[in-house]
Design a protein around this nucleic acid. Structure first.
Length: 350
DNA sequence: CAACCGTGGCT
DNA sequence: TAGCCAAGGTT
């Protein structure tokens, strides 16, 4: 039985309540947002930092968006941080600091979609619902040998996963809906892995249709995704003594609201000369020095190649409109996405 | 509804 | 290595 396996093999995770203890909706919510498309390993340190600084949802609701973005820097998918903050504000101001305890109520909050609403409802409030994430999609598609491709198969998989919830809870005094979901997630993470699943260790192997056919690894069915076109651009690392010239990106879109050094557009097929022409204009800047090599970075939808130029300007040189000087020593505190950390490291010779 | 939205680790 | 993958949501 699935829950019996879970009771023995469940992962110990910072946001999970100990067996028998009630879980904190704030920690469940925070972890679920961080874990969207992000590995447990990457989330760990960020989760600890967040709960240490903001122990509850009202504390986070009082924080500034900028502080939240700075703390989130490096985790990726930055709209999550904006929605996280907006959600904390909404819960604080409109729900008296108490999370709604129904899927519907949770779903109405920013950053909480169908998966996360079901996950919080099940894990934090023991609601009888089955969240379906990537792990559960894989487990269920193998268990029932779902031939339909993703994402079209989502409704079917959701339905099949729900039957699993009913099965795993039959006869239980409490529903343990959250444990059923987390059991399937742990199974997907540790046993029913994308490649070379350890079927011999799986508590569901006897019931697995794909296993019976020996085709586990071919599920879930999925069309191969096309890779984006390479884009090129230039980045400009300007120092004034021990300070660096930076600006903030627009609130929406790629790396929304994050800090960057000035740079050109990022376009497919753009040549170096065109990119360099978009350099910021500073008084008393004698010449640009092109750093050898390029900075490469891969976003979800396209790979990026950045040429880096450096220049020094005299003390008290004014920052161009919309830009500012920040001490290099405090760069770690800025809301710098990793691509910009790479650029700065390359430009400054770290 | 398909496209957009980061990053790091693993095979 | 180059692609795949991770506790998805928003538009």
């Amino acid at each position: 039985m699935l829950l019996a396996w879970y009771d023995r093999h469940r992962r110990r995770l910072p946001w999970r309540a100990a067996p028998g203890e009630t879980s904190d909706p704030y920690r469940v919510w925070l972890s679920e947002i961080m874990l969207q498309q992000t590995t447990v390993k990457a989330v760990g340190p960020y989760f600890e930092k967040f709960v240490a600084r903001w122990p509850d949802v009202t504390a986070l609701g009082r924080a500034s968006l900028d502080d939240v973005l700075r703390m989130w820097a490096g985790l990726g998918y930055y709209s999550r941080a904006r929605n996280l903050h907006a959600c904390a504000v909404a819960v604080t101001r409109e729900h008296d600091g108490v999370f709604p305890d129904t899927e519907e109520g949770l779903r109405a909050l920013p950053g909480i979609g169908p998966y996360t609403a079901a996950a919080i409802a099940a894990i934090a409030f023991d609601r009888r619902t089955m969240p379906v994430d990537g792990n559960i999609e894989r487990v269920v598609s193998r268990l029932f040998a779902v031939e339909e491709e993703l994402p079209q198969a989502k409704p079917l998989i959701q339905q099949l996963a729900a039957t699993l919830l009913a099965d795993s809870c039959a006869g239980d005094e409490t529903s343990r809906a959250g444990d059923s979901a987390q059991a399937l997630m742990d199974l997907g993470a540790s046993i029913c892995t994308p490649k070379k699943p350890a079927c011999s260790l799986c508590p569901l192997s006897e019931d697995c249709m794909a296993r019976a056919r020996g085709t586990q690894e071919t599920f879930p069915r999925k069309a191969p995704k096309k890779s984006g076109t390479l884009r090129r651009g230039a980045a400009f690392v300007v120092t004034r003594g021990d300070e660096l010239l930076v600006r903030s990106r627009p609130d929406k879109g790629l790396l929304g609201g994050m800090t960057e050094v000035p740079g050109s557009d990022w376009l497919a097929g753009q040549d170096d000369a065109a990119a360099k022409q978009q350099a910021p204009e500073l008084k008393g800047l004698s010449r640009w020095q092109r750093k050898v090599g390029v900075v490469t970075h891969v976003f979800t939808h396209f790979p990026l190649e950045l040429v880096v130029y450096t220049a020094k300007v005299e003390a008290r040189t004014r920052a161009p409109e919309g830009m500012r000087w920040v001490p290099i020593a405090t760069l770690a505190d800025e809301a710098l996405p990793n691509v910009m950390r790479k650029v700065i490291a390359h430009g400054l010779g770290f």
